[in-house]
């Protein structure tokens, strides 16, 4: 099971790289946002994989379990708690970004980042 663990870490890295690529190079704003959600998921997967104990048990203590055996075999639950928070934060950030995109689409009529986000710099040129 150990090689699976390593593979999961590499998959998380791959997901982060896919997300970074799309967040930087893809022009469509919705796809950029989807890419950002992939970065977040990759990081979450990485942190959950940190807490994983090969051949272990779920870190919930049941009646009748020996505490010493449980402590030796259970997965580390702290990263899981962190990821729970991080998933919810990611979803709310995504919702705010999509709301801003919907407002901006009404003004520009396009989803292209080059058109939508270029105007501030144009305004600066006009000022100078």
């Amino acid at each position: 099971m150990a090689y699976v663990h390593i593979t999961i870490l590499f998959t998380a890295a791959l997901l982060i790289i896919i997300g970074l690529y799309s967040a930087i190079f893809i022009d469509n704003i919705i796809k950029k946002i989807i890419g950002i959600s992939f970065i977040e998921e990759g990081v979450n997967l990485f942190i959950v994989a940190l807490g994983y104990a090969p051949d272990g048990v779920v870190p919930i203590i049941m009646p009748g379990m020996d505490p010493a055996w449980f402590a030796a075999n259970a997965a580390y639950p702290l990263p899981f708690g962190l990821v729970l928070t991080s998933i919810v934060i990611g979803a709310s950030t995504l919702a705010v970004m999509l709301a801003l995109v919907m407002v901006l689409y009404r003004r520009y009529g396009t989803l292209s980042t080059k058109v939508m986000l270029a105007d501030t710099s144009k305004q600066e040129e006009y000022n100078e």
């Binding site: 950029k32 946002i33 950002i36 950030t93 970004m97 801003l100 901006l104």
Partner: peptide, 9 residues
């Protein structure tokens, strides 16, 4: 939106 995209990276 720009600030938010940079922030969420």
């Amino acid at each position: 939106l720009k600030y938010m995209i940079l922030g969420s990276i």
